[in-house]
């Protein structure tokens, strides 16, 4: 089985400081991987290197592209990488403002990716947008409203619809439930789980919330100071952590 994403020896430095280093893993189709660690552990740096937002200083990120088979996304041309990121990839930002166009209606936000890949039929674009708003539980009467009129949870769901509308295969998520109320988080988690299952998505989710990864991720990677401390099956890493840092991390979670 060919991995969807094969990451080899990724390193990113900020001057003398290490962003992340020595990261290796294979992500297979349909797998959801969580990356946890405290602030500054390098998890967001790593995610941005994988998604092509940051150029790593070392290593390769090989993606199994539908049309051509495996390609190194680190060395590919910017135009190709952008094409990937609006067709086969998606990126969900922690702050929906970073992932949405706040001055464009909800329908336009969802439709943008369709139009970017050549959709030119207004009626069809609108129909698809309406359908997707429904799937993320936004009433179709809100289709012409701007996201600035939406609550935080709705904005985040809109961002997810906007990202998934072109049927991507790999979704990068940076703290997708951060900054949301616990009750809103729960609804979003359930939504994400359903979409991942229905669409057969692979996903890499960066979060500092261990409860979120337990519910969403099949696999877990623990990072500290730019290094991967431990990785494995999510429940195994959380219930039987091997590394000292992971044991500390898991035992530090407050019980509800």
């Amino acid at each position: 089985m060919t991995p969807l994403l094969s990451v080899k020896n990724i390193e990113k430095r900020y001057g003398a400081r290490i962003g992340c280093t020595g990261v290796n893993f294979d992500l297979f189709p349909g797998e959801v991987m969580g990356i946890v660690g405290e602030s500054g552990s390098g998890k967001s740096t790593l995610l941005n290197c994988l998604a092509g937002h940051l150029a790593p200083d070392q290593g390769s990120v090989t993606y199994d592209r539908t049309s051509t088979g495996p390609v190194d996304t680190v060395t590919m041309a910017e135009a190709e990488r952008r094409m990937l990121s609006r067709t086969e990839w998606a990126f969900v930002h922690q702050n929906p403002r970073d992932g949405l166009r706040m001055g464009v209606s909800a329908g336009g936000n969802v439709g943008e990716r369709l139009m970017a890949v050549g959709a030119r039929h207004y009626g069809n674009i609108r129909e698809t947008s309406t359908d997707w708003l429904g799937r993320v539980e936004i009433a179709d009467s809100r289709i012409d409203d701007r996201p600035s009129a939406f609550s935080g949870g709705m904005q985040q769901r809109l961002q997810i619809a906007r990202n998934l509308v072109t049927g991507p295969r790999l979704v990068f998520m940076d703290e997708p439930t951060g900054g949301l109320d616990v009750s809103v988080q729960a609804r979003l988690l359930d939504l994400l789980r359903g979409l991942v299952r229905e669409m057969g998505l692979s996903a890499i989710i960066v979060t500092h919330d261990l409860a979120v990864v337990r519910l969403l991720a099949d696999r877990l990677m623990v990072m500290k100071d730019g290094n991967v401390i431990e990785q494995g099956l999510t429940d195994q890493v959380l219930d039987d952590p091997q590394a000292a840092y992971t044991q500390l991390l898991v035992s530090s979670v407050l019980q509800v």
Binding site: R82, R101, S105, M115, I143
Partner: peptide
């Protein structure tokens, strides 16, 4: 400039979409 270089013109149609929606 980057959008022109990469033919990343989805946004242009978003403007027309918004016109029709409104």
């Amino acid at each position: 400039r980057r959008m022109h270089a990469l033919e990343d013109y989805g946004l242009m149609h978003v403007k027309l979409y918004e016109d029709i929606a409104r």
